[in-house]
Design a protein around this nucleic acid. Structure first.
Length: 358
DNA sequence: AAAGCGTGGGG
DNA sequence: TCCCCAAGCTT
């Protein structure tokens, strides 16, 4: 009888932030941008620059992918002022491979705004942060909570999943977003809001995972309505996605006899905006036009470069040629061999280069 | 306001 | 091979 009553109260009681914080105190992930428990105990305060940088890098990007970029950026540009002073090309090159390159352009805009309009100090309010380039609702709330310990409502994909399960919400995303945000708001505590924000996201990342959630280890299993109903594996519901079409293109890799490569900087907006790349055709579902950037004996590489972007697959035909010193290109500029670094290219362009060899 | 915008890992 | 997913923002 006691067991039954306890079981029922588990289902009906609301989730308690303090139970999650207790779990977090034992199971928080160790991350390069996160203060260690020892530092926190010693009264060390988070650095808003590092929190902001990590949050921007983590937008739609896995922790594993972000780690090395975060360490490289903070080693090279230890402060927002240092980053603000960096040349665009250096920052874009350092971001190469991480994806969503508009983030890097907005990162610089934001750093320069903080440096010039805010004396190099990040605003400490939701509104102040939200006004900066590349900082949307999530990032503003996350920085306010984590860097300044403000009780803002932090809602990312993890929080959406945790809330959908906690409340057995079957309305599909993104339609359900306002409802899930309201649930998140109702739970956000006034004490330790920064730790709480990180705790919900850690819970989503390590326990309340999309597949194979570890409900046996969950501090909120008791109040979880999906657990009670057995629906946790179906949640959150999502509206089905369209499948990606395949586009075709040609990339021209011209090597000058001194070893320089013909590259061009892509326009600031659109796909791979602001990044270096090989001159080439447009990418479309119909076969590309022939339009080499320089007159030469072009040879087609036997293998295509295949790559998948957010909304299409690409099959890229790679053509290469050796050109003499005195021939001027119609597009792009030759980059000297000692200046050229394939690591500064976005991944699809690295793949094309890899097919040509060295 | 729906669509554009990267990449790598895992099932 | 394919699809799903990951600390979303901008237009």
């Amino acid at each position: 009888m006691w067991q039954t009553i306890k079981g029922m109260s588990d289902v009906c009681d609301p989730a308690r932030p303090r139970d999650l914080l207790h779990w977090y105190d034992r199971h928080a992930r160790v991350l390069p941008w996160r203060l260690s428990p020892a530092d926190r105990a010693a009264g060390v305060v988070p650095d808003p620059y590092r929190i902001w940088l990590s949050e921007v890098m983590l937008q739609q990007t896995t922790v594993a992918a972000v780690k090395e970029y975060f360490l490289a950026f903070t080693a090279r540009w230890p402060t927002v002022t240092a980053l603000a002073a960096a040349p665009d090309a250096e920052v874009m090159a350092a971001w190469a491979g991480l994806g969503y390159y508009a983030r890097a352009r907005n990162l610089l805009k934001c750093a320069r705004a903080v440096a010039s309009d805010h004396g190099g100090v990040f605003p400490d309010t939701l509104e102040g942060l939200r006004a900066l380039p590349g900082i949307g609702p999530y990032t503003a709330a996350a920085v306010a909570a984590i860097a300044f310990d403000r009780p803002e409502v932090v809602v990312d994909g993890n929080v959406e999943r945790v809330m959908a399960r906690l409340h057995d919400e079957h309305m599909p995303l993104p339609q359900a977003k306002p409802v899930l945000t309201a649930h998140a708001a109702a739970l956000t505590p006034q004490t330790r809001p920064g730790d709480y924000a990180q705790a919900v996201m850690d819970l989503g990342a390590t326990v309340c995972t999309p597949r194979n959630p570890l409900c046996g280890l969950c501090p909120w299993r008791g109040p979880c309505a999906a657990w009670a109903a057995g629906t946790q594996l179906e949640l959150p519901k999502k509206t089905p996605k369209k499948r990606k079409p395949t586009r075709l293109g040609i990339a021209y890799l011209a090597r000058r006899v001194d070893g320089a490569w013909l590259l061009e900087q892509r326009p600031d907006s659109g796909l791979l905006g602001g990044m270096l790349g090989w001159p080439g055709s447009d990418w479309s579902e119909t076969p590309p036009e022939e339009a080499p950037p320089i007159r030469a004996e072009w040879k087609t590489v036997s293998e295509e470069a295949r790559h998948t972007f957010t909304h299409f697959h690409l099959r890229l035909v790679v053509r290469t040629a050796l050109v003499p010193m005195d021939r001027a290109p119609a597009r792009g500029m030759f980059v000297e061999p000692d200046t050229f670094d394939p690591e500064a290219l976005p991944t699809v362009m690295r793949k094309a280069f890899a097919l040509v060899g060295r």
